[in-house]
Design a protein around this nucleic acid. Structure first.
Length: 360
DNA sequence: AAGACGGGGGG
DNA sequence: CCCCCAGTCTT
């Protein structure tokens, strides 16, 4: 256990933090939601709304994937009040493809909560009270938007600190929960006055230099402090989580086309792909052999192949069928979307795969 | 403490 | 193909 209060450790940490800031001043990524280090030194601070929006999008999501969504959202809804007044269907449609759709529902809920407040919460407790904002996001927004003296701890920070201090590597005796607590204490002890830039520097370092595999230690401002680097054992930190094999679920997609339009239905708010538009489908079941799934209506169903999609905890094998019918069946509720528009109508990626098989 | 919850990128 | 994720909420 590192004693973060010992004077010699404090001195080392202070020097390491400064080295990181110096590196960040030279190498900071330019990102759509970011105010660069030079501007921040001149007193320019980012709009908390944009910081919050970016951090929600960046949960379990890479910068290149999130960036175009950020541009679209801020164009459509430049502030929390505008987002609060949006139709929920529009918010869900624009989120389609980003994944973890509970984030989108919480995003809209949060915007409505923000619209009721006099100003954006600028304390950790205030931020934590917002829907969809957990310990990481509260710390990130607090530090980046308000320079609160706190360090957000995400996967990048865990990896960087794990290596810097050789905490929680393969074969750690203490267990990951205790290791993570120690990592959090360490990075908190490192936080300098420029806490917002420090937080962003840690993300840039983890993302571009202290990468999970083949870290670029030659470019790292912390190589001279890094205990894992000294051991030459960087990739043993942090310990890799053991992964369970994912079961296979099977089902059938039923793409119904009538008068040049395709039927989509909105899924219930709770659960997988909650609140999203999807083509008709059977249930997705873990089944041993073949599945005998009934069709939802009498028609000439044409088999179009199998869409495969990896979810968090299972793999879907989705047999896609299409039927062209003369009249819209009265028995089927939903939205009818023009065939040439339906692929980009706000359907999650798994639904897109099935629609492409059926229509292209 | 464990499970649910998407999707894409890299080697 | 297998690895890695810029987490939060529920149970």
């Amino acid at each position: 256990m590192v004693n973060v209060k010992s004077p010699s450790v404090k001195t080392q940490f202070s020097s390491a933090a400064q080295d990181l800031l110096d590196w960040y001043d030279k190498h900071a990524r330019q990102l759509p939601w970011r105010i660069g280090p030079q501007a921040r030194k001149n007193g320019v601070m980012p709009d908390p709304y944009r910081v919050w929006l970016s951090e929600i999008m960046l949960q379990q999501t890479t910068v290149p994937h999130a960036a175009p969504y950020f541009e679209k959202f801020t164009t459509l809804w430049p502030n929390a009040n505008e987002l609060a007044e949006a139709e929920n269907d529009d918010v869900m449609r624009e989120w389609a493809g980003l994944g973890y759709y509970a984030r989108a529902r919480n995003l809209h809920k949060c915007a409505k909560a923000l619209a009721e407040l006099e100003r954006f919460p600028d304390t950790i407790e205030g931020l934590l009270a917002l829907p969809g904002v957990g310990p990481y996001t509260a710390a990130a927004v607090g530090a980046i938007a308000f320079d609160l003296p706190i360090a957000p701890v995400d996967g990048n920070v865990e990896r960087v600190i794990s290596r810097l201090m050789t905490i929680g590597g393969d074969g750690s005796a203490t267990g990951w929960a205790a290791d993570k607590k120690e990592i959090t204490q360490c990075v908190q002890a490192l936080v300098p006055k420029r806490s917002g830039d420090f937080a962003q520097a840690m993300m840039d370092l983890g993302s571009g230099v202290c990468t999970p595999k083949s870290p670029n230690c030659g470019q790292c401002p912390w190589a001279k402090y890094c205990l894992a680097h000294r051991e030459g054992n960087m990739e043993s930190y942090p310990a890799k989580a053991k992964r369970k094999p994912q079961p296979i679920r099977k089902g059938r997609a039923f793409i119904v086309v009538s008068e040049g339009k395709v039927l989509l239905q909105r899924r219930p708010d709770k659960g997988l792909l909650g609140g999203m538009l999807m083509p008709l489908s059977s249930e997705w079941i873990e089944a041993e052999g073949g599945t005998d799934i009934p069709f939802p209506l009498e028609a000439e169903w044409q088999a179009k192949g199998q869409a495969r999609h990896v979810f968090t905890h299972f793999v879907l094998h989705w047999d896609v069928f299409v039927a062209h019918v003369d009249a819209r069946p009265n028995s089927l509720e939903g939205d009818w979307i023009a065939m040439d528009k339906v692929i980009d109508s706000g359907v999650p990626t798994v639904g897109k795969k099935a629609l492409k098989l059926a229509l292209l």
